[in-house]
Simulated scan of single mutants.
Amino acid sequence: MAWWWQTLIGVAAALLLVWIALLTALLIAKPGRSQLKEALRLLPDLLRLLTRLAADRTLPRGVRVRLGLLLAYLAIPFDLIPDFIPVLGYADDAIIVVAVLRSTVRRAGLEAVRRHWPGTDEGFAALARLAGLPPPVDNGENSSYPRA
């Protein structure tokens, strides 16, 4: 067998293994059905938040790179899981956004995310649930996340 066939087969096998690993990671990190519905409802505000966070030079470089890669992934026309596959076809984008968002909040902090949030307080509370943040501060009058 020619060397270029062996190389081509090796590259195809490596890509298949990477795809299987990413698919497995998605299935492990998959949030519940109600969380997916919340994420889809918040999508416009989430996209604005991600864009604002990616452009914020005060955040760590790793966070900005991660957010830039996420925005690039969301912009490309193909997905890890094709959209014709029921449930997971459309959910893969939401799962990846939630995973990156959790990582961003843990690394950049709640204040940075709150500062850039374009939506309502109720929307931010839903975002906090998706990102696994602690419950809102209860100051006796209402329960909300303080604005930075």
Rank of each mutant, 00 (worst) to 15 (best):
D92R: 13
I28F: 08
A128S: 06
A54T: 05
E38F: 15
F84Q: 10
S143W: 13
L8R: 07
N139E: 14
R52A: 13
A75F: 15
G62A: 06
T51S: 02
P146N: 07
L74F: 02
P86D: 12
Q6M: 12
R57H: 14
A94F: 00
V137T: 01
T7E: 09
T104N: 00
N139Y: 14
P60V: 09
I95P: 00
V137L: 10
I81Y: 06
L27P: 06
A128M: 02
L127K: 03
P134F: 02
D93K: 11
L110I: 09
M1F: 08
L49V: 00
V11G: 11
A148Y: 14
R107A: 14
I95C: 01
L70V: 05
A91W: 04
D92A: 10
A21D: 11
P135H: 02
L110W: 12
S144D: 10
L36Y: 02
V63E: 06
H116F: 03
A55E: 13
L23I: 13
W4S: 07
D83I: 15
V65E: 06
A131H: 10
L8C: 09
A91T: 06
A14D: 06
L133W: 01
K30D: 08
R102G: 04
W4G: 01
G89W: 07
S103R: 13
G140S: 00
F124Q: 00
N139R: 15
A126E: 05
R147H: 00
A112N: 01
